[in-house]
Write a protein that binds this DNA or RNA. Structure first.
Lengths: 204, 204
DNA sequence: TTGCTTGTTGAACAATCGTACAACAACGGG
DNA sequence: CCCGTTGTTGTACGATTGTTCAACAAGCAA
């Protein structure tokens, strides 16, 4: 026969690996085309898989989007943790690292914001996404309150300052990614740092 | 005949009035169902009109969404102008009014945020929406820089502070609408006011 | 090799999408 | 009163959506 190696029509993947590749493909599509473009077919093609696999592993496209939210959030949390760990032991340096990490890769990425906005756009219509958002936001703020406490911010002021810092960082991150030409990441870092200086000096 | 009044099957509306009712219906649908749910049929039903009218007045659903963005943005600008005008002549009071108006109706409305997020979700995919966003954001910041200048903030610091205040307000507004149970509008106002106090006292 | 498990495929389905357009009718000018 | 203008309707169309599922085959065990 002149028949060469049969060259398998597809590969069997480890369930977790396949799940991950679908999630990552979903994140890429979400970033590129927004929530409206995140169709089963677009995601499957991006992942190099068939449409049926989404149903097989996640039951539906909604659950895949939800799982992607979870995954992306975990990635952000890891990036922030790493930034804090790299900062050393000084409480103030750790707080600054946590805050300014939002203005550097991989967090200050228009693609990540697009993914995030896609999630926000689902909060109104879907209870499970709203719950996920509440948990993620509460977790971020709790983490920040801890770092503020380590810097000597009074217990009574922590909650308020954590809300303020979170808002400032969110707002800067939002505009930095949405209109990248308006101000630089360095400016965002400086603004955030100055704000932290005001907070940690006046309330200890 | 026992036939009563013919009771017209529909009413002829003034072109502008019809356009407006479609825009307002689009905003309501955007707020309720997100960008994904803003279909021609959903909008037409919300407006009590037929699907054909959207094509007739706007040429397509994309142009209607764009027009809605414009309209909602203008409404917000009007609300902010009104708040400033009501505040009187004291520059500081005017600045505070401008900033804290974002945490009261009609701006601090989950429905308005949902509409806004729907627009953000289109920035990635559509150039015209991105341009609209840049213009709107630049306008807001220019207005804020003017009010800061009236309060004696140095020229060199205006740009930076305007960026910071905009980010803080955006972030507070975002979370206030997205997770209404987390903190109150009063807390948001207090945080913003304190920040303005820090800015206007240290840099004059 | 043979057989079994199960990850994978892609066609089929009904529902919904945006757009186009021919037919209808409300309203004002004659 | 009638007639033309034009705002309005709703169906029809092809494209695309999410989901289902019978058939297929990759890889492992025996």
């Amino acid at each position: 026969m002149n028949q060469t190696a049969p060259s398998p029509a597809f590969r069997r993947e480890e369930p977790d690996a396949r799940r991950l590749s679908l999630i990552e493909a979903c994140a890429r599509v979400l970033a590129r085309s927004g929530a409206a473009g995140a169709s089963v077919r677009a995601i499957a093609q991006e992942a190099g898989a068939s449409v049926g696999l989404v149903g097989h592993y996640f039951g539906g496209v909604d659950a895949l989007v939800s799982a992607t939210y979870d995954h992306v959030d975990r990635q952000v949390a890891q990036a922030l943790d790493k930034a804090v760990a790299t900062a050393g032991d000084d409480p103030r340096a750790r707080l600054e690292a946590f805050v300014t990490a939002s203005f550097a890769p991989p967090i200050a990425d228009p693609a990540l914001l697009a993914t995030w906005i896609a999630f926000w756009s689902l909060v109104t219509a879907r209870k499970d996404i709203a719950r996920q958002h509440d948990e993620q936001y509460a977790g971020y703020r709790a983490r920040l309150e801890g770092l503020l406490g380590d810097c000597g911010v009074a217990t009574t002021a922590r909650r308020r300052h954590a809300i303020a810092v979170t808002a400032l960082v969110d707002g800067l991150w939002l505009e930095l990614c949405l209109s990248p030409g308006c101000f630089t990441a360095q400016e965002a870092r400086d603004i955030a740092r100055d704000f932290l200086a005001l907070i940690t000096s006046s309330d200890r």
